[in-house]
Simulated scan of single mutants.
Amino acid sequence: MKVFLRCFAALIMVISIILGFISVNTFQSSTAVDDIGISMVRLLYEYESIIDVYNREDQIKSLCSPDVWEAINFDNTAHFAGTWDRTRNIPTVVRVVFTRPGLVVYALENDFVVPKDLWCFEYRIENGVFSEVREYQLVSMRRDKEGGLF
């Protein structure tokens, strides 16, 4: 019986190690997709002056499908009012709170924006460019007893 329990415990350990390697490899393979979403959020909203964003226009446009560019470009007054106007053209830093493939949850840090306000940048990549983008503000969040978001 002792031999059986030891073999069973060893089998459980081996399975745990294998599952750990699988989860680490899965996380590492999704990092490149996460990075492109984080990069786009920073290109759009992290700047010393709104002029920095205008200077990045060609870079941002090259990462977007025509439909996405039409939705997020600087000439779209609805997008401008809902995004860059909220920062009041003062230096802004993006703080990434959570990310997974297709989603970046972030906060904007400057003297005007409430630092607890969280924003979502949801996206889809097709043929190496952003083919769909949705942005919205999280209205309320709850924290678990350890302080993490859930």
Rank of each mutant, 00 (worst) to 15 (best):
F4S: 10
R6L: 15
L11S: 13
I12P: 05
V14L: 11
V14R: 06
S16D: 06
I17H: 07
I18K: 06
I18R: 04
L19V: 12
G20N: 14
S23W: 09
V24M: 13
N25A: 08
F27V: 07
S29F: 13
T31W: 05
V33E: 13
V33L: 15
D34A: 13
D34M: 15
D35W: 06
M40S: 02
V41D: 00
L43P: 04
L43D: 10
L44E: 12
L44S: 10
S49W: 06
I50S: 14
I60C: 04
S65K: 01
S65T: 14
P66K: 01
I72M: 04
N73M: 02
D75L: 10
N76T: 04
N76R: 05
N76W: 06
A81V: 14
T83M: 03
W84P: 03
D85F: 05
T87S: 04
P91R: 02
T92C: 02
T92Y: 03
R95S: 11
V97T: 09
V97P: 00
V97F: 00
G102K: 04
V105K: 11
L108T: 03
N110R: 13
N110A: 07
D111L: 11
F112L: 06
F112K: 12
V113E: 02
K116E: 12
Y123M: 08
E126H: 07
G128D: 09
V129H: 09
V129C: 13
E132R: 10
V133E: 00
R134P: 00
Q137D: 08
Q137T: 14
S140K: 09
E146L: 11
E146Y: 08
